[in-house]
Write a protein that binds this DNA or RNA. Structure first.
Lengths: 124, 124
DNA sequence: ATTTTGAGTTTACAAGTGTAAACTTTGGGT
DNA sequence: ACCCAAAGTTTACACTTGTAAACTCAAAAT
């Protein structure tokens, strides 16, 4: 029953930046993210919330604070992916991929190959 | 700039039921979903919200109301999938699948095949 | 020294969600 | 004809999210 704080959509954008630039200062974060149309305050709030969610740590080795992700992009992606798969595809990778494939233009043979590979993944 | 109401996680569970049982009555919905530990009221609220989001329609051909999904499972899945892909994988199907593959036990050859297929999907 | 400025903190506020009680109406049972 | 349970409606309330202003300090600029 762990409460597992989740990273919201906007917060995710901040994380993306921090994954690319660990130990960034706020000024840096602000510069980079204000392009998203966010105000100064908004960015500060997002960072603060990430810190309180323990997704980001503060490195206060003077004189400026630097922010560092505590969760790797990969682990976050996997977690999101699992949630998503369970929620939308009943946990079934093959259903997901089938759906993606049908949206594109694979022919039957290719789709079949794809599915057989997916099956090998053993993840359903 | 359409507001595009989204279907929340709990609401999704109701939709799943309605996709399987279109034109269900509330009693039916209640019976089926109370297993999730939801109270009567909760289920009614979820259905009501889905109606106001125009995801579900009411069929009031007496004597009981029947609820019918207005959005297909497939279109909802695709929409969710797109959101998810953009949010977490920058819209890249191949990154998603690579990630899934690395979590399972495909060997290099298989992974390569998988990727070439994914590339053919051109959705990356 | 005095002012400006940016970093960090506190407070705000509406919309959406999870969860549900309370109230109202009405068809079916007795 | 009268009551009850279930359907439908209103109200509630805390938490999260998106978005941001306001306030406090200390450092930098003049």
């Amino acid at each position: 029953m762990k409460k597992e704080k989740t990273i919201s959509e906007s917060e995710w954008v901040v994380m993306e930046y921090l994954w690319e630039n660990p130990l960034a200062t706020i000024t840096e974060i602000r510069k980079a993210l204000s392009a998203n149309g966010w105000s100064d305050s908004t960015i500060k709030t997002l960072v603060r919330r990430l810190v309180s969610k323990k997704a980001v740590a503060i490195n206060d080795e003077e004189p400026v604070f630097r922010y560092k992700p505590l969760l790797s992009k990969n682990e976050c992606r996997l977690k999101e992916t699992k949630n998503f798969l369970n929620r939308v595809y009943n946990g079934s990778v093959s259903m997901l991929v089938t759906n993606l494939a049908s949206e594109s233009n694979l022919n039957e043979k290719e789709t079949a190959e794809l599915l057989s590979l997916i099956e090998k993944m053993g993840k359903d």
